[in-house]
Write a protein that binds this DNA or RNA. Structure first.
Lengths: 190, 190
DNA sequence: CTATATACGGAGGTCACCTCCGTTTATCAA
DNA sequence: TTGATAAACGGAGGTGACCTCCGTATATAG
């Protein structure tokens, strides 16, 4: 007989397989068609019914978050490496450059970032883009390199603002320049 | 008989009336429901058919642009006044503050700004938000107060980035702070 | 008053979203 | 192996928004 606690079975093999297929299909379709791609196209390209898609990912956001979680985690990883290798201010600057490169290749992320309100879907555990950015900024502040009188995340938002829509070539260079302007603007007055 | 040139009649009175009604309804509905409000609600609130809406404004963008044109023009006006009354850098800073206030009350504009690629729908004639911002920035640069090594419009984009989505209270204060950071960051190194 | 260019309206085709539930299937215990 | 059963599937179909098309209505000019 079943114990008073719900019996835990490991998920069915087909379920797991379909989840993977969906994520692959989603990645391809989002890249091709942008973050508003039709979910039904994703489902059919994955070879499953639309119902299955919704069972696994109850909202578009949830799907986007899963698809880009790896990328987010890499970005967070990089921050740790940079922190170890460089002085605080340089680490911050270098990471912001990565961030811009990142949104350059995955514009889709903007949607994921935007709608959650948080700067990233929280991975099961471990650092988020938000926490990493905050950390880098606070280190630089502690070192006396900058004065932190804004929410660090707003700096990311500013960069995303420049990336957003501005599809004209050169937006990326402009965003990179903005990094330096922002950092210069945060310098303590001497 | 008709001349070889098309005969120009002034628009029918009902057409003009409906256009006005549509714009009023649109303003109300956009304010209430955001920039993705159903166009059919706008039409019905204006007491006209959906076909009439589309005849007057062929896209959502066109409608948004018309509805907010007055506001844009005021913003452009203000720039002129500030230019006359204040030294270049102060004028720039003051105008950016207005810009933030502006997107605070009319978040809807973000959509209008975004999708056109330009920072504003061009009024029939006269200055646009883009031209005004560029002008203010160039004056400040000419006075030697700032070094202009980005597209001035990108500064607006950065501010919009902070405004965007960030509905948590306090975003407006953060955006105002960002203005100072940006300006400080543009200062010539001395 | 009439002719006609102009404007109106909304029915209906299209498309995407999302839910619901009858059917299928993987898993487990016997 | 073989049921029994929980888990998962799939897609039909309701909903809502977009936008076009064209038969009908009407303001205007002469």
């Amino acid at each position: 007989m079943p114990s008073s606690e719900a019996v835990i079975r490991r998920p069915r093999a087909d379920a797991e397989r379909n989840r993977l297929r969906l994520m692959e299909a989603a990645k391809a379709v989002f890249t091709e068609r942008g973050p508003n791609a039709a979910l039904e196209e994703i489902a059919s390209r994955a070879g499953v019914g639309i119902g299955t898609l919704y069972r696994h990912f109850s909202t578009r956001q949830a799907l986007l978050a899963e698809v880009y979680r790896h990328a987010f985690e890499q970005l967070a990883e990089a921050a740790i490496q940079l922190s170890l290798a460089l002085p605080p201010l340089d680490a911050l600057r270098a990471w912001l450059r990565l961030f811009v490169d990142y949104i350059a290749t995955k514009q889709v992320v903007l949607a994921a970032l935007g709608a959650t309100g948080n700067a990233a879907p929280a991975p099961a555990s471990g650092p988020t883009v938000t926490s990493v950015m905050t950390d880098l900024a606070e280190r630089a502040a502690a070192a006396g390199d900058i004065v932190l009188n804004v929410d660090p995340i707003d700096l990311l938002r500013a960069l995303m603002g420049v990336a957003n829509v501005n599809n004209g070539p050169g937006w990326q260079a402009n965003a990179q320049r903005l990094i330096d302007i922002l950092i210069e603007g945060l310098r303590p007055t001497r």
